[in-house]
């Protein structure tokens, strides 16, 4: 199974050691920055920046690039829609009902680099941060809103969901093999047939997931779980000097980029 998101990979790097709160904050700030920039030249610089950041994480670059590649269908649909239905700017090319405008091309390029950058950053975040640390950071960042939303419960739900991704992948694999042994084939044959075979895999998946959720709930209650709010943590996040430095660098980069965008 090749799913990079939600998959922590241990390497010795500065990025790995950063406090997850810092990483998450910088990630959000950068995401906002990415959507503020409208100049394609700056995106060139940003992409170079992301690639050098990959070097800093000491993770194999192809892992992160391939996560962006997995967007190809989404991007293709988006490109088709924007190219043919965006009708502003100068008409470049016309063929029957199909009209391509220069603004359309600009939009396509903008959306593509934005999406690719966000996905690469998100992949890097999850590859360098343990899922549980990430939810803990999310909980900490959202804690000012404790009165309004059940932050602790949401954090727990998210961490359970993340925890069960590999389990579910495992189970899906087993179900697919069990049905393949009975002649199910979702790769070949007429489309109706393939959908039917897919159903034969989806139903056991749901059944097993619900059963697992029920068992987990019972197991948690049996160990005295009442609510997430009043629970304390076994491990606490600690703040080092490098975290302050990292935070300052991360936010400075974002501000500089925004300022360049302003000037240009």
């Amino acid at each position: 199974m090749k799913i990079a998101i939600g998959n922590y990979i241990e390497t010795e790097s500065f990025i790995h050691r950063l406090n997850p709160i810092v990483k998450l904050t910088i990630f959000f700030v950068w995401m906002i920055t990415l959507f503020m920039i409208k100049n394609l030249a700056i995106y060139g610089i940003i992409l170079v920046g992301i690639l050098s950041l990959i070097q800093l994480t000491r993770l194999p670059a192809r892992l992160i690039v391939s996560s962006a590649w997995s967007l190809k269908w989404l991007l293709l649909i988006m490109i088709v829609f924007n190219l043919f239905f965006y009708k502003q700017g100068n008409l470049l090319w016309e063929f029957g009902v199909v009209q391509v405008y220069d603004q359309g091309i600009y939009q396509v390029l903008l959306l593509t680099v934005r999406l690719v950058s966000v996905v690469m950053l998100a992949t890097m975040l999850t590859l360098t941060t343990k899922p549980l640390d990430l939810t803990l950071a999310l909980e900490k960042l959202l804690s000012p809103f404790k009165k309004l939303i059940p932050v602790a419960d949401i954090a727990l739900m998210v961490s359970i969901a993340i925890r069960f991704i590999p389990t579910l992948i495992d189970e899906t694999d087993k179900i697919m093999k069990a049905q393949a042994s009975r002649g199910a084939n979702i790769e070949e044959g007429p489309i109706i047939q393939r959908i039917k075979h897919l159903v034969s895999m989806l139903i056991p998946m749901f059944v097993i997931s619900f059963k697992r959720a029920e068992n987990l709930a019972v197991a948690m209650e049996a160990r005295g779980y009442t609510d997430a709010q009043s629970r304390t943590r076994l491990t606490k996040l600690s703040w080092h000097q490098r975290d302050t430095v990292g935070l300052i660098i991360g936010i400075s980069i974002a501000s500089i980029i925004v300022m360049i965008g302003w000037i240009m």
Binding site: I175, K177, S181, V199, S200, M201, I203, P204, V207
Partner: peptide, 14 residues
Amino acid sequence: VGLVFQYPEYQLFA
């Protein structure tokens, strides 16, 4: 070659 898996839950769906 018929393969019977350990857990019937993985294949019963109808």
